[in-house]
Design a protein around this nucleic acid. Sequence first.
DNA 1: ACGCGGTGTATGCGGCGATTACATTCGCGA
DNA 2: TCGCGAATGTAATCGCCGCATACACCGCGT
Lengths: 255, 255
Amino acid sequence: MTRPLRPAPRSPRKPRPAVAAHKAPAKAAGTRSGKAAASKPYHHGDLRRVLVEAAFDLVAERGPETVSVREAARRAGVSPGAPFRHFESRDALMAAVAAEAQRRFRQEIATALAAVPADQPLRRFRALGLAYLRWAMRNPGHFEVISDGRLFDFDAAQGEASGLKADNAEIIDMSAQWLADASAKGLLRSADVKLMQIAGRALVYGYARMKADGHFPRWGVGEAEIEPMAEAVLDLFLAGIAKGDGPIKGRAPRA
Amino acid sequence: MTRPLRPAPRSPRKPRPAVAAHKAPAKAAGTRSGKAAASKPYHHGDLRRVLVEAAFDLVAERGPETVSVREAARRAGVSPGAPFRHFESRDALMAAVAAEAQRRFRQEIATALAAVPADQPLRRFRALGLAYLRWAMRNPGHFEVISDGRLFDFDAAQGEASGLKADNAEIIDMSAQWLADASAKGLLRSADVKLMQIAGRALVYGYARMKADGHFPRWGVGEAEIEPMAEAVLDLFLAGIAKGDGPIKGRAPRA
DNA sequence: ACGCGGTGTATGCGGCGATTACATTCGCGA
DNA sequence: TCGCGAATGTAATCGCCGCATACACCGCGT
């Protein structure tokens, strides 16, 4: 499942995919001369969104490194210079992709957490870690994108509200809160919450990157074992920081 | 400490760095084995090595993404096409850089382990993890290079003996052996050695990548705290998998 | 001594990110 | 309703890149 090493052999010459999708720029009714004419209007209507979607798909298909502004423009059916009306650089485009990926990631985590009672911090912590791992296992390209610190910094430097920074901070804060709660409830062996937070993060991040970076074959872990082992690794960690021997995933964390 | 986002603004126009280093300038004796003449010999003498060194330095200076074959050629004082006599592609060059980095990494680990008795498997395991973390903290670019699964696969696909694969496997085997020894000695809470091995690897790998990827500022960890916290994280992990409460780093691991 | 093969240079191709000049269209105020 | 500036598209261009090809040089084995 490894991707090509360099920016990509490009694609084998495409003739131009016409105009691509169009969101229905509304105003089909002629309030204001709307009409997205049948044959390629000069103005695209929602190019910014379409470019992000194209780049987003390219990330999933061939990995972040292979994404080029020109290819995204090709897929959107516009000239190579057009994207620069909406993104000051390739990295601005990629940062938008990262924001979208982070948004979906956050959504998936929220869904996973909905099933876990709020008063069981370690179970919530575990559910967070599991959702993190599962999403990263299944979206390695997008995981790479949201892990790129340079894109994050680029995005954060723009005053704009892309949500990337906020969505990321929310996840960090959640993990800190639950560990603190667990600690307050006397569920943890150590009192150094910050340390456990960083260690937990490093663990899931490392596991996810090992997958994305293609390290598991070297470690004798077959493709089918990766996800189950992710869960086992997470539970090993929880067993290491939790007081007592009971499994965290069980019903009652206190006895 | 973040690096530029894209392949690099290049360098701001360099006039050409002359010929670079050269081993033995003399050659006065006109016999066969002359290495170099005073003024730029047609044949470089040891271009392959010099190119790897140039790329190696570029990785340290500006990160792996910014390395270009042409820049390496410039630093070596040769034409842009010359490197392709020695490396079939940019990735072949980078794989050579990875092999060199891995070699140094392995050397540093060996040095660190020399001080730890062979009959104390957990202390050796800890020393390995610590050496791993320290090296990665201090050589983030080179750490990225040896972590690039595609370069590893590329190198492994070549029949050639670059040492990358062997050096890597050796480290993996060491960690497995010591955990197995520790397990046999009854030092571990769990019997699943493979799981602990993968978890330990994911932990240090994740921590190291968090550093290389610039994540620590987002987690409220200042530059000065990173290395001490690396050690603390490692010890948290060891405390989690080891039986009893005694610190691993201490003198006697059994009592 | 010679010539073959290894290693360098010169040149060129196509792709890339990015900039600039120009074309088209949207939408807002008079 | 018109008109004009701002927004957003195209075309052409620049310089850098990886890489291929043809040619120049030269060390070494015969």
